[in-house]
Simulated assay, not measured.
Amino acid sequence: MKILIRAFSTLALALAIGGSAFAQEYVKGEVVKVDAKQKKLTIKHEPLTNLDMPAMTMVFVVAEDGMIEKVKAGQAIEFAADRVNGRITVTDIK
């Protein structure tokens, strides 16, 4: 019985966190500018359907400082973005 309760508790927690915890939507983009000091990337990207945004060029903050070091201007990337604390944020880069 305790195992069943623990399993349901884990499931409830996972559902409370949201669907993005299970599958992130990756889109193609091109890094236009890297601003390491401000921890921001300017990316020309395909539509971000999870954010209901058309294709455009825009500035994103990054979720982790190390992401800035992974990219350079002119580089093609696949990335995931979401709203984090009210800001549109790059949450992962492939």
Rank of each mutant, 00 (worst) to 15 (best):
K40N: 15
I5C: 09
A36H: 00
I5A: 14
E30C: 03
K33A: 14
A55D: 00
L51C: 02
N50S: 04
D35E: 13
K44Q: 14
A36I: 01
I88Q: 03
I3M: 14
K33L: 11
E25W: 02
V61C: 12
F60Q: 01
I5D: 13
L15H: 09
L41V: 04
A80R: 01
G19F: 01
T42S: 05
E64Q: 15
V32I: 09
M1E: 08
F22L: 08
E64V: 09
V61D: 09
V27T: 14
I5W: 08
G86Y: 06
K28T: 02
V61T: 12
T42L: 02
G86K: 04
G86V: 00
A73T: 13
M53F: 06
I77D: 11
R83T: 05
A21H: 05
F22V: 02
L11Q: 07
V90K: 04
I5Y: 08
M1T: 03
T89S: 05
A14Q: 13
G29P: 05
K28N: 15
K37I: 14
V71Y: 10
V59Q: 04
A21G: 11
T49C: 00
M53R: 09
T10K: 15
K40C: 10
D82K: 02
D82Y: 14
A80Y: 05
E46L: 08
K94R: 15
T57Y: 13
L51G: 01
I17E: 14
L11A: 06
V34D: 07
H45F: 03
L15T: 00
K37L: 08
G74Q: 13
M1H: 08
V84T: 10
L11K: 08
Q38E: 15
V84K: 15
T10S: 06
V27G: 02
A12Q: 10
I3S: 12
A63F: 15
T91K: 14
D82P: 13
P47A: 11
K33T: 15
T10H: 06
E64P: 03
K94I: 13
V34Q: 03
M58E: 14
P47E: 15
A63V: 04
D35P: 07
I43A: 06
N50Q: 12
I3F: 06
F8E: 03
K39V: 11
I43L: 02
V62C: 08
